[in-house]
Simulated scan of single mutants.
Amino acid sequence: MRIPDIPRIRRVPRTPRCVSMALAAVAVLAVVTGCGASGADADSGRSGITIRIPDPGNSGVLARGKKDGSLAKALAKVNATVVWTGSAGPLAPAAQALNADQLDIATGSITSGLTSLAQTPGFAFFTATAPDPVGEGILVRNGSGINSVQDLVGKKVAVNQGGTGEYLLLKALAKAGVPADKVERVSLRPDQTAAVFNTGKVDAWAVWSTYSVAELGRGSAHFIADGRAVDSDNYSLTAVRSAFADRHPEVVTALYRYLHDGSVQEKRDPAGFLNVTTDAGPQALTGAAKRTQIAFTRQGGTVEPITDADVKRFKDVARFYAEQKVTRAEVDIAAHVIDVRKLAAGKAS
């Protein structure tokens, strides 16, 4: 089915999930390769260690650290320099860049992490932020007549295949007792879904705060179930290239401390971490959307080390993904976790 002037909707294929991730990775790798350092240069650098991180855009701890120089100062203490490489985006394509030695750090959801780990990973996770209780969920347009998860039967729901969106939808359906095959999953890139959703080509959107804030801020849509309602275990994680962590544990530790301290400050003063480089244009949040994001951040988590309790919840997500046939088998995520508290002493597990 073709839709004029907006991305073509396609049904979720029943082929291996790695196909779409590999295609998405091509674009990311092209950007990364064009402006990043080589593997040798990244590890040694002319004046110390170079750590390659996706450009953070206009909001968040890294964006503020880039602008005010505080991240550079923190890394200089361990003889490291940051190189901003490409731009931040979904973890699945970024994981491909990590595996290709074109990136050292990436962030994303545990759900995308699992589908990436199902391949041949060259990275591990070293921080966790608790699942977002209010900024992610199943979004519907006001006046759609969809008032509950049960009302999704026979409807089309936009998801990002193998990532947060598909996870949230499957969790919502499972909790509501709705068979997954009673709802049509429509696989779309998150940055292309708003137009499809707002023109009614899909009935609902399984989405997270990066994209839900704009819709909620316009007052044209609402959640029928948020992260808390579906019992989401969708942690946000920070990944590091395994070889980099092995060679430079002190840099990874310093980055963790910076992210943790910054996230604590961000939760106290969310507005101070918004519109960091510009307060106008498509990257900026204003009005109701800005107020919505501030409210979400205040209710969110902070960047923390990964604990045994976290790993247990990661395993629950891995088991759920295998049961739902998102992955072919249960991914052993525990084998790809670093205890950053022990990393500097060379005792990470």
Rank of each mutant, 00 (worst) to 15 (best):
D5Q: 05
R11A: 10
R11S: 07
R17P: 02
C18T: 14
S20Q: 06
L23Q: 12
A27E: 09
G36F: 01
D43I: 01
S47V: 01
G48W: 05
K73R: 14
V78D: 07
A80M: 09
A95H: 06
Q102I: 11
T107W: 10
I110N: 02
T115Y: 08
P121N: 09
D132K: 05
P133H: 12
I138D: 06
R141T: 11
N147V: 10
L152F: 08
V153Q: 13
A158D: 07
N160F: 09
G162D: 02
G163E: 04
A172P: 02
E184I: 08
V186W: 11
G200W: 08
V202E: 02
W205G: 09
Y211I: 12
Y211H: 12
S212H: 11
A214T: 13
L216V: 04
I224V: 14
V240W: 03
A245K: 03
A245V: 03
H248Y: 01
A254I: 05
L259N: 00
S263E: 12
A271N: 15
F273H: 03
T278G: 02
Q283G: 13
R291Y: 08
T292Q: 15
F296R: 08
R298I: 09
G300L: 05
T302S: 08
I306Y: 05
V317E: 00
E323M: 04
T327Q: 05
V331F: 08
V337C: 05
